[in-house]
Simulated assay, not measured.
Amino acid sequence: ITSGSADLLGTTTVDAVNGTATFSNLYINQTGSSYTLTASSSGLASAVSTSFSVSAGAVSQILITTQPSEGPGADVFTTTPVISFKDANGNIASSSATVTASIKSGTGNSNAALIGTTSVSAVSGVAEFTDLGIDLAGTDYVLTFESSGFASVDSAAFDVTDPLPYQLLFLEEPYGGFNKNYPSAANKVRIADKLGVTVADATNEITLSIKSGTGTAGAALSGTTVVTASGGLATFNQVAVDSGGTNYQLMASSSGLVSATTSTFNI
């Protein structure tokens, strides 16, 4: 090969018969364009072929080209798993077939499940699981990837750590109350992961307020409106709305977390 970075495989040295040398099992192991071949023989001028391209052969296997990596539970993998359809020489071959992911039996947490899209159609021979994750923490997880007609492949083992705080959720919705009395029920806010499961060790500071544009203009909350959560739960005691009105909403917020807003209520 006089251009390109691939290898020329097969029988590359042949004796001529009646002035003609035939290379019957010669091939190039990588796809590419603008390849040229040079034929040489001692004492003779060399010859260079015209340029040509090499495309992938028939799909013969699926391979993991990007492994899933360790990350928190209830979230997408830190590194997106990528599966490629390849020919016998390892070149990516065109395919739109579907690849399905699953947790290999006996690995990780036995109660865990995949979250996100578990079946992906390949595009130009590549299937990317961009929103895939695992809901529960565990060690030595292995994923199995399957596509009809091909041998399945297993990922390398990896760990999933405890889910991280992601959002705030009111434990219950309010159902109204009286002026200067806190609306019933909505006095507890929990810290949850992306799946809405309470993060039991979360201790974030949470602020409670009247959502802007709701209720009576100028109304405010009295009492302690900033609370540090314990066990993933913040309880707001003796907090009241100071003015009567309709269509109030409360908002719970905490730095770095998705805020929560109640349904409307009247005072």
Score class of each variant (00 low, 15 high):
G108Y: 02
N204Q: 11
L44I: 07
V17D: 08
K86G: 12
V120A: 11
S51N: 09
S155Y: 06
A186D: 02
S84E: 13
A186I: 03
L233S: 02
T235D: 08
I206Y: 01
T22F: 13
L195T: 00
T31R: 09
A240F: 10
F23E: 10
A56E: 08
V59Y: 09
L221M: 05
A127T: 03
V82R: 03
A122D: 08
G73M: 04
S155D: 02
I115C: 05
T144Y: 03
S105Q: 06
G73E: 01
S69E: 10
A47N: 12
L26W: 08
A88P: 02
S155L: 09
S53T: 07
I115Q: 08
L164Q: 13
G57V: 10
S119G: 10
N187Q: 03
G244L: 11
A137Q: 02
F265Q: 04
T2K: 13
M251L: 14
V14R: 07
S155M: 06
V48P: 03
A229L: 08
S34G: 13
V226W: 00
T50F: 05
S84G: 09
T198M: 06
I206K: 00
N179I: 15
N266P: 04
F178A: 15
K188F: 00
D159T: 06
G177C: 14
I28P: 04
E205Y: 01
S24T: 15
P68D: 01
S46D: 12
